[in-house]
Design a binder for these strands. Structure first.
Lengths: 252, 252
DNA sequence: CAGTGGTCTAGACCACACC
DNA sequence: GTGTGGTCTAGACCACTGT
């Protein structure tokens, strides 16, 4: 009855009850597409949950769960006593556990990888501490050079406990490290990253095709599987003049 | 009946049904504390949802919601057909929309702020574009120097549309910028950050007490309220030798 | 097979915002 | 007041994992 805010919204959906995809997810996905495509304009106000559920032939909890999903992803704002409104889509996709390789592919660049080395070594104290191993335990040391459009952009150093490396050097040229780990059944769960900066050493300047004294972005990452076991320690340096990290945050 | 994994868990809780705090949240919070304190050991396996709900005198959906909350925060792993297990607590708290001021306080350091300037200026093209304004619109330019334990660590530059600044210079010395914004009713919703690095200019080296040519961490942040309106543009530089960003990610 | 979490339903009551 | 989202309940059926 009220056209106070920009406008109300009446989407039209197809819901497949026989699909293995959960109903709430079907609804959430279609609403998300409608919002991102502008079909449901920013600022629009939705009808209330009960009405929407009725329109779609769903129960309120299911409809509610779909809306909650959108809220969690920052696409709508819900307020008790007020209603649900579409937000201007300023939020980039949530930060995911992807590799630089994926990042480059997603931004349409042409990434290549040069394998510098893949060697089984004895863990020193520092690496052992980060990976929850004992000094002297076997770890694979993986060194790679990542380039975008033929120009080097990052030197990537990874340490992996011996048992997680069942792939060979050739596979690392074509696939991201995380893809290979997942493929062998490792359930990645979380990661802690530290992002910093420092001046490039002479050898690094040369390797990354940067002037002497250029600033480098550094990222150290420890990745854990869902037992809480450390799977990988990454120590990476990026040519800061050509690479930066994008992070989106949701408040609440 | 089974002691296959490390062990099963029997927590004992106090649930206040009269409290305004939701039941699921009371349960989730107490479980979280028990896990983080080690009272429920890493690797422990929970009884199933129905059993837990019965033990606590709750319905299954409510109990389920509490467990889901823990799962979302990376404290437990749930798998259909298997059960719920406590993860090694390797995940730092989720990245939040806090300021460096809060970061320093939380790590027990003694932060101070020197206000360098707070001036109303005309937005140039770049600032206007970032804040969705027109060039020439009034924006406040806020410059501050942040120090930890008396030594400068970051130079912070913020641009805010005129209407969001109702506070004075004195309040900025004692409170974070976001705190002041929230206090005047601004509903912060999301932020996009770009983290990079570059060598320090001469004046910056001096200001931040760093050697010439030192690397600086840079962070640009645009913060939006829940209408999707840009509230603030921050352009900050940090002495990289003494500051880094910590980011935790959850896969899923 | 039995046991687990994942989904869905149909109701109820409440806290909050606006009139 | 009326209308909104937030919470809670008591069931049901399903999908997946292990034996």
């Amino acid at each position: 009855m009220s056209a106070q805010s920009p406008e109300a919204v009446i989407p039209s959906f197809t819901i497949a009850r026989s699909s293995p995809v959960p109903l709430y997810f079907q609804v959430a996905t279609q609403l998300e597409q409608a919002i991102l495509s502008g079909q449901i304009p920013a600022g629009a106000r939705f009808a209330n949950e009960i009405q929407l559920a009725e329109d779609l032939g769903l129960s309120r909890p299911t409809m509610r769960r779909a809306m909650q999903h959108l809220s969690d992803n920052g696409l709508v704002v819900r307020r008790r006593g007020i209603g649900t409104r579409v937000v201007q889509p300023k939020v980039r996709r949530k930060l995911e556990l992807t590799s630089l390789y994926d990042d480059l592919v997603n931004t349409g660049q042409r990434p290549t990888t040069d394998l510098i080395g893949l060697d089984l070594i004895d863990a020193d104290d520092e690496v052992a501490a980060h990976l929850d191993l004992k000094a002297g335990d076997g770890v694979y040391l993986l060194k790679r050079l990542r380039s975008a459009n033929g120009r080097p952009i990052a030197k990537m150093t990874n340490y992996l406990p011996e048992r997680y490396v069942t792939f060979g050097a050739d596979e690392l040229a074509d696939h991201g490290l995380y893809e290979l780990l997942r493929r062998q059944g490792v359930q990645l769960h979380s990661a802690n990253q530290t992002i910093g900066a420092r001046p490039a050493a002479a050898a690094e300047s040369k390797l990354l095709d940067e002037p002497r004294g250029a600033a480098l972005l550094t990222m150290q990452r420890i990745t854990y599987d869902d037992h809480g076991t450390a799977v990988e320690l990454g120590v990476h340096v990026y040519a800061a003049s050509r690479y930066s990290f994008e992070v989106s945050l949701l408040t609440s």
